[in-house]
Design a protein around this nucleic acid. Structure first.
Lengths: 206, 206
DNA sequence: CGACAACTAGACAGATCTGTCTACCCATTC
DNA sequence: GAATGGGTAGACAGATCTGTCTAGTTGTCG
């Protein structure tokens, strides 16, 4: 127990708890699951892409299902770090920060590695009565919408919670449309629609 | 060839071209694919649920992939028939018809058989470089948004095409949020957001 | 009756899936 | 040097997948 954490002597990357093999597995699984779908990718493909042995995967995660959860949690954390940092960086008014949402999404959509939202896709291809993936997804969305609601509140929105969730609708809609159409322009359209939601905020001008 | 169409002597249901076995297969496949995901359901499960033999499935569709396409095309057609009829039925102004969009979606979300959008889910769990399912999906969305754009035009929208596509964002967003949260209230939220998009239309009143 | 068409039941082949297991490698540490 | 722990390589079991094939059943029509 103690040795497991106290070990990892050389690698200084990240928190130092993750072993390199575990990290390579997460990266490979993320890439493959997002591109081809979770059920369409076998663990043999994941370990081949990660360059590890199959036993390493099962030692680290226990099952493919647990690997999927770990992938979603890691990918969600990284995405939120990137997205929320994009909102919060530098000097800006709350409304200006809210207006960054869709340009940021546009950057994401334009990446050749953009395959839609891993959470939405994962839920879509699993039993809809399954609650585990939905719980992970809801936690992720709550973290994102929570920050947006704070900004809406600072911006003086009459109903910050409602505004945040309506922006959430536009966010998810834009993600889905961008995945289907392969057109990052969905972000521009959503930005425009969001402006219509911002008219109640004081500092607005077409 | 001719016999295949000219036959089906007794059954008078529907257009009469579909054989009962084929229809049962489509119904069973739709139910199972939507609920559990396409890749998670094998053809053995489909034929068992449909009460047919496996050979009947392959005789009628040729492959599981073709069955999937047939399911999406049939389901899309039925959904559009229901949805567009809901918009167009009875006497109403174009804006009133546009305002029916989200209450209609709310009815859909509230059904216990609601498992999200089969098109979105299908694309999400397949290779994102695959174009076949995307083409079917785009055709479906085009049919829906085309009618919405006509209504927006009749309603005097300054940019009917843009309004239609923005409503499309809210529609897809609401579908996804309803699937994730299992809360039909996403439709109300979207209806409210849509009202903000309608302010440019003349006959609007909070 | 005989031909025919649609369907059923289920065996079967071959591939692939998840998960386990053995045997070995190698670096670090005591 | 010996022990240890993380990793590799890959065989293996057992299930399940898609798709094919054979044989038999049912019902219709001439």
């Amino acid at each position: 127990m103690i040795a497991v954490v106290a070990a990892t002597p050389m690698m200084g990357d990240g928190p130092g708890i993750e072993s390199p093999a575990r990290e390579r597995l997460l990266e490979a699984a993320t890439r493959l699951f997002c591109r081809y779908g979770i059920n369409a990718v076998g663990v043999d493909t994941v370990v081949a892409e990660a360059g590890t042995a199959k036993a390493t995967l099962y030692k680290a995660f226990g099952s493919k299902e647990k690997l999927v959860e770990a992938v979603l949690e890691r990918e969600g954390r990284q995405w939120r770090d990137w997205f929320l940092a994009g909102l919060d960086t530098g000097e800006a008014t709350p409304v200006e920060r809210l207006r960054r949402i869709f340009p940021l999404l546009g950057e994401w959509f334009a990446q050749d590695r953009f395959y839609g939202c891993p959470f939405i896709n994962a839920i879509g291809e699993h039993d809809k009565a399954e609650d585990r993936l939905r719980a992970i997804t809801i936690a992720h969305k709550k973290a994102v919408l929570g920050r947006i609601e704070s900004l809406a509140l600072e911006a003086g929105a009459p109903d910050a919670n409602r505004l945040a969730h309506q922006l959430g609708l536009l966010i998810d809609g834009a993600i889905v449309v961008a995945m289907i159409s392969k057109d990052p322009g969905a972000a521009l359209l959503a930005a425009d629609a969001a402006d219509s939601l911002f008219v109640a905020l004081g500092s607005d001008c077409g």
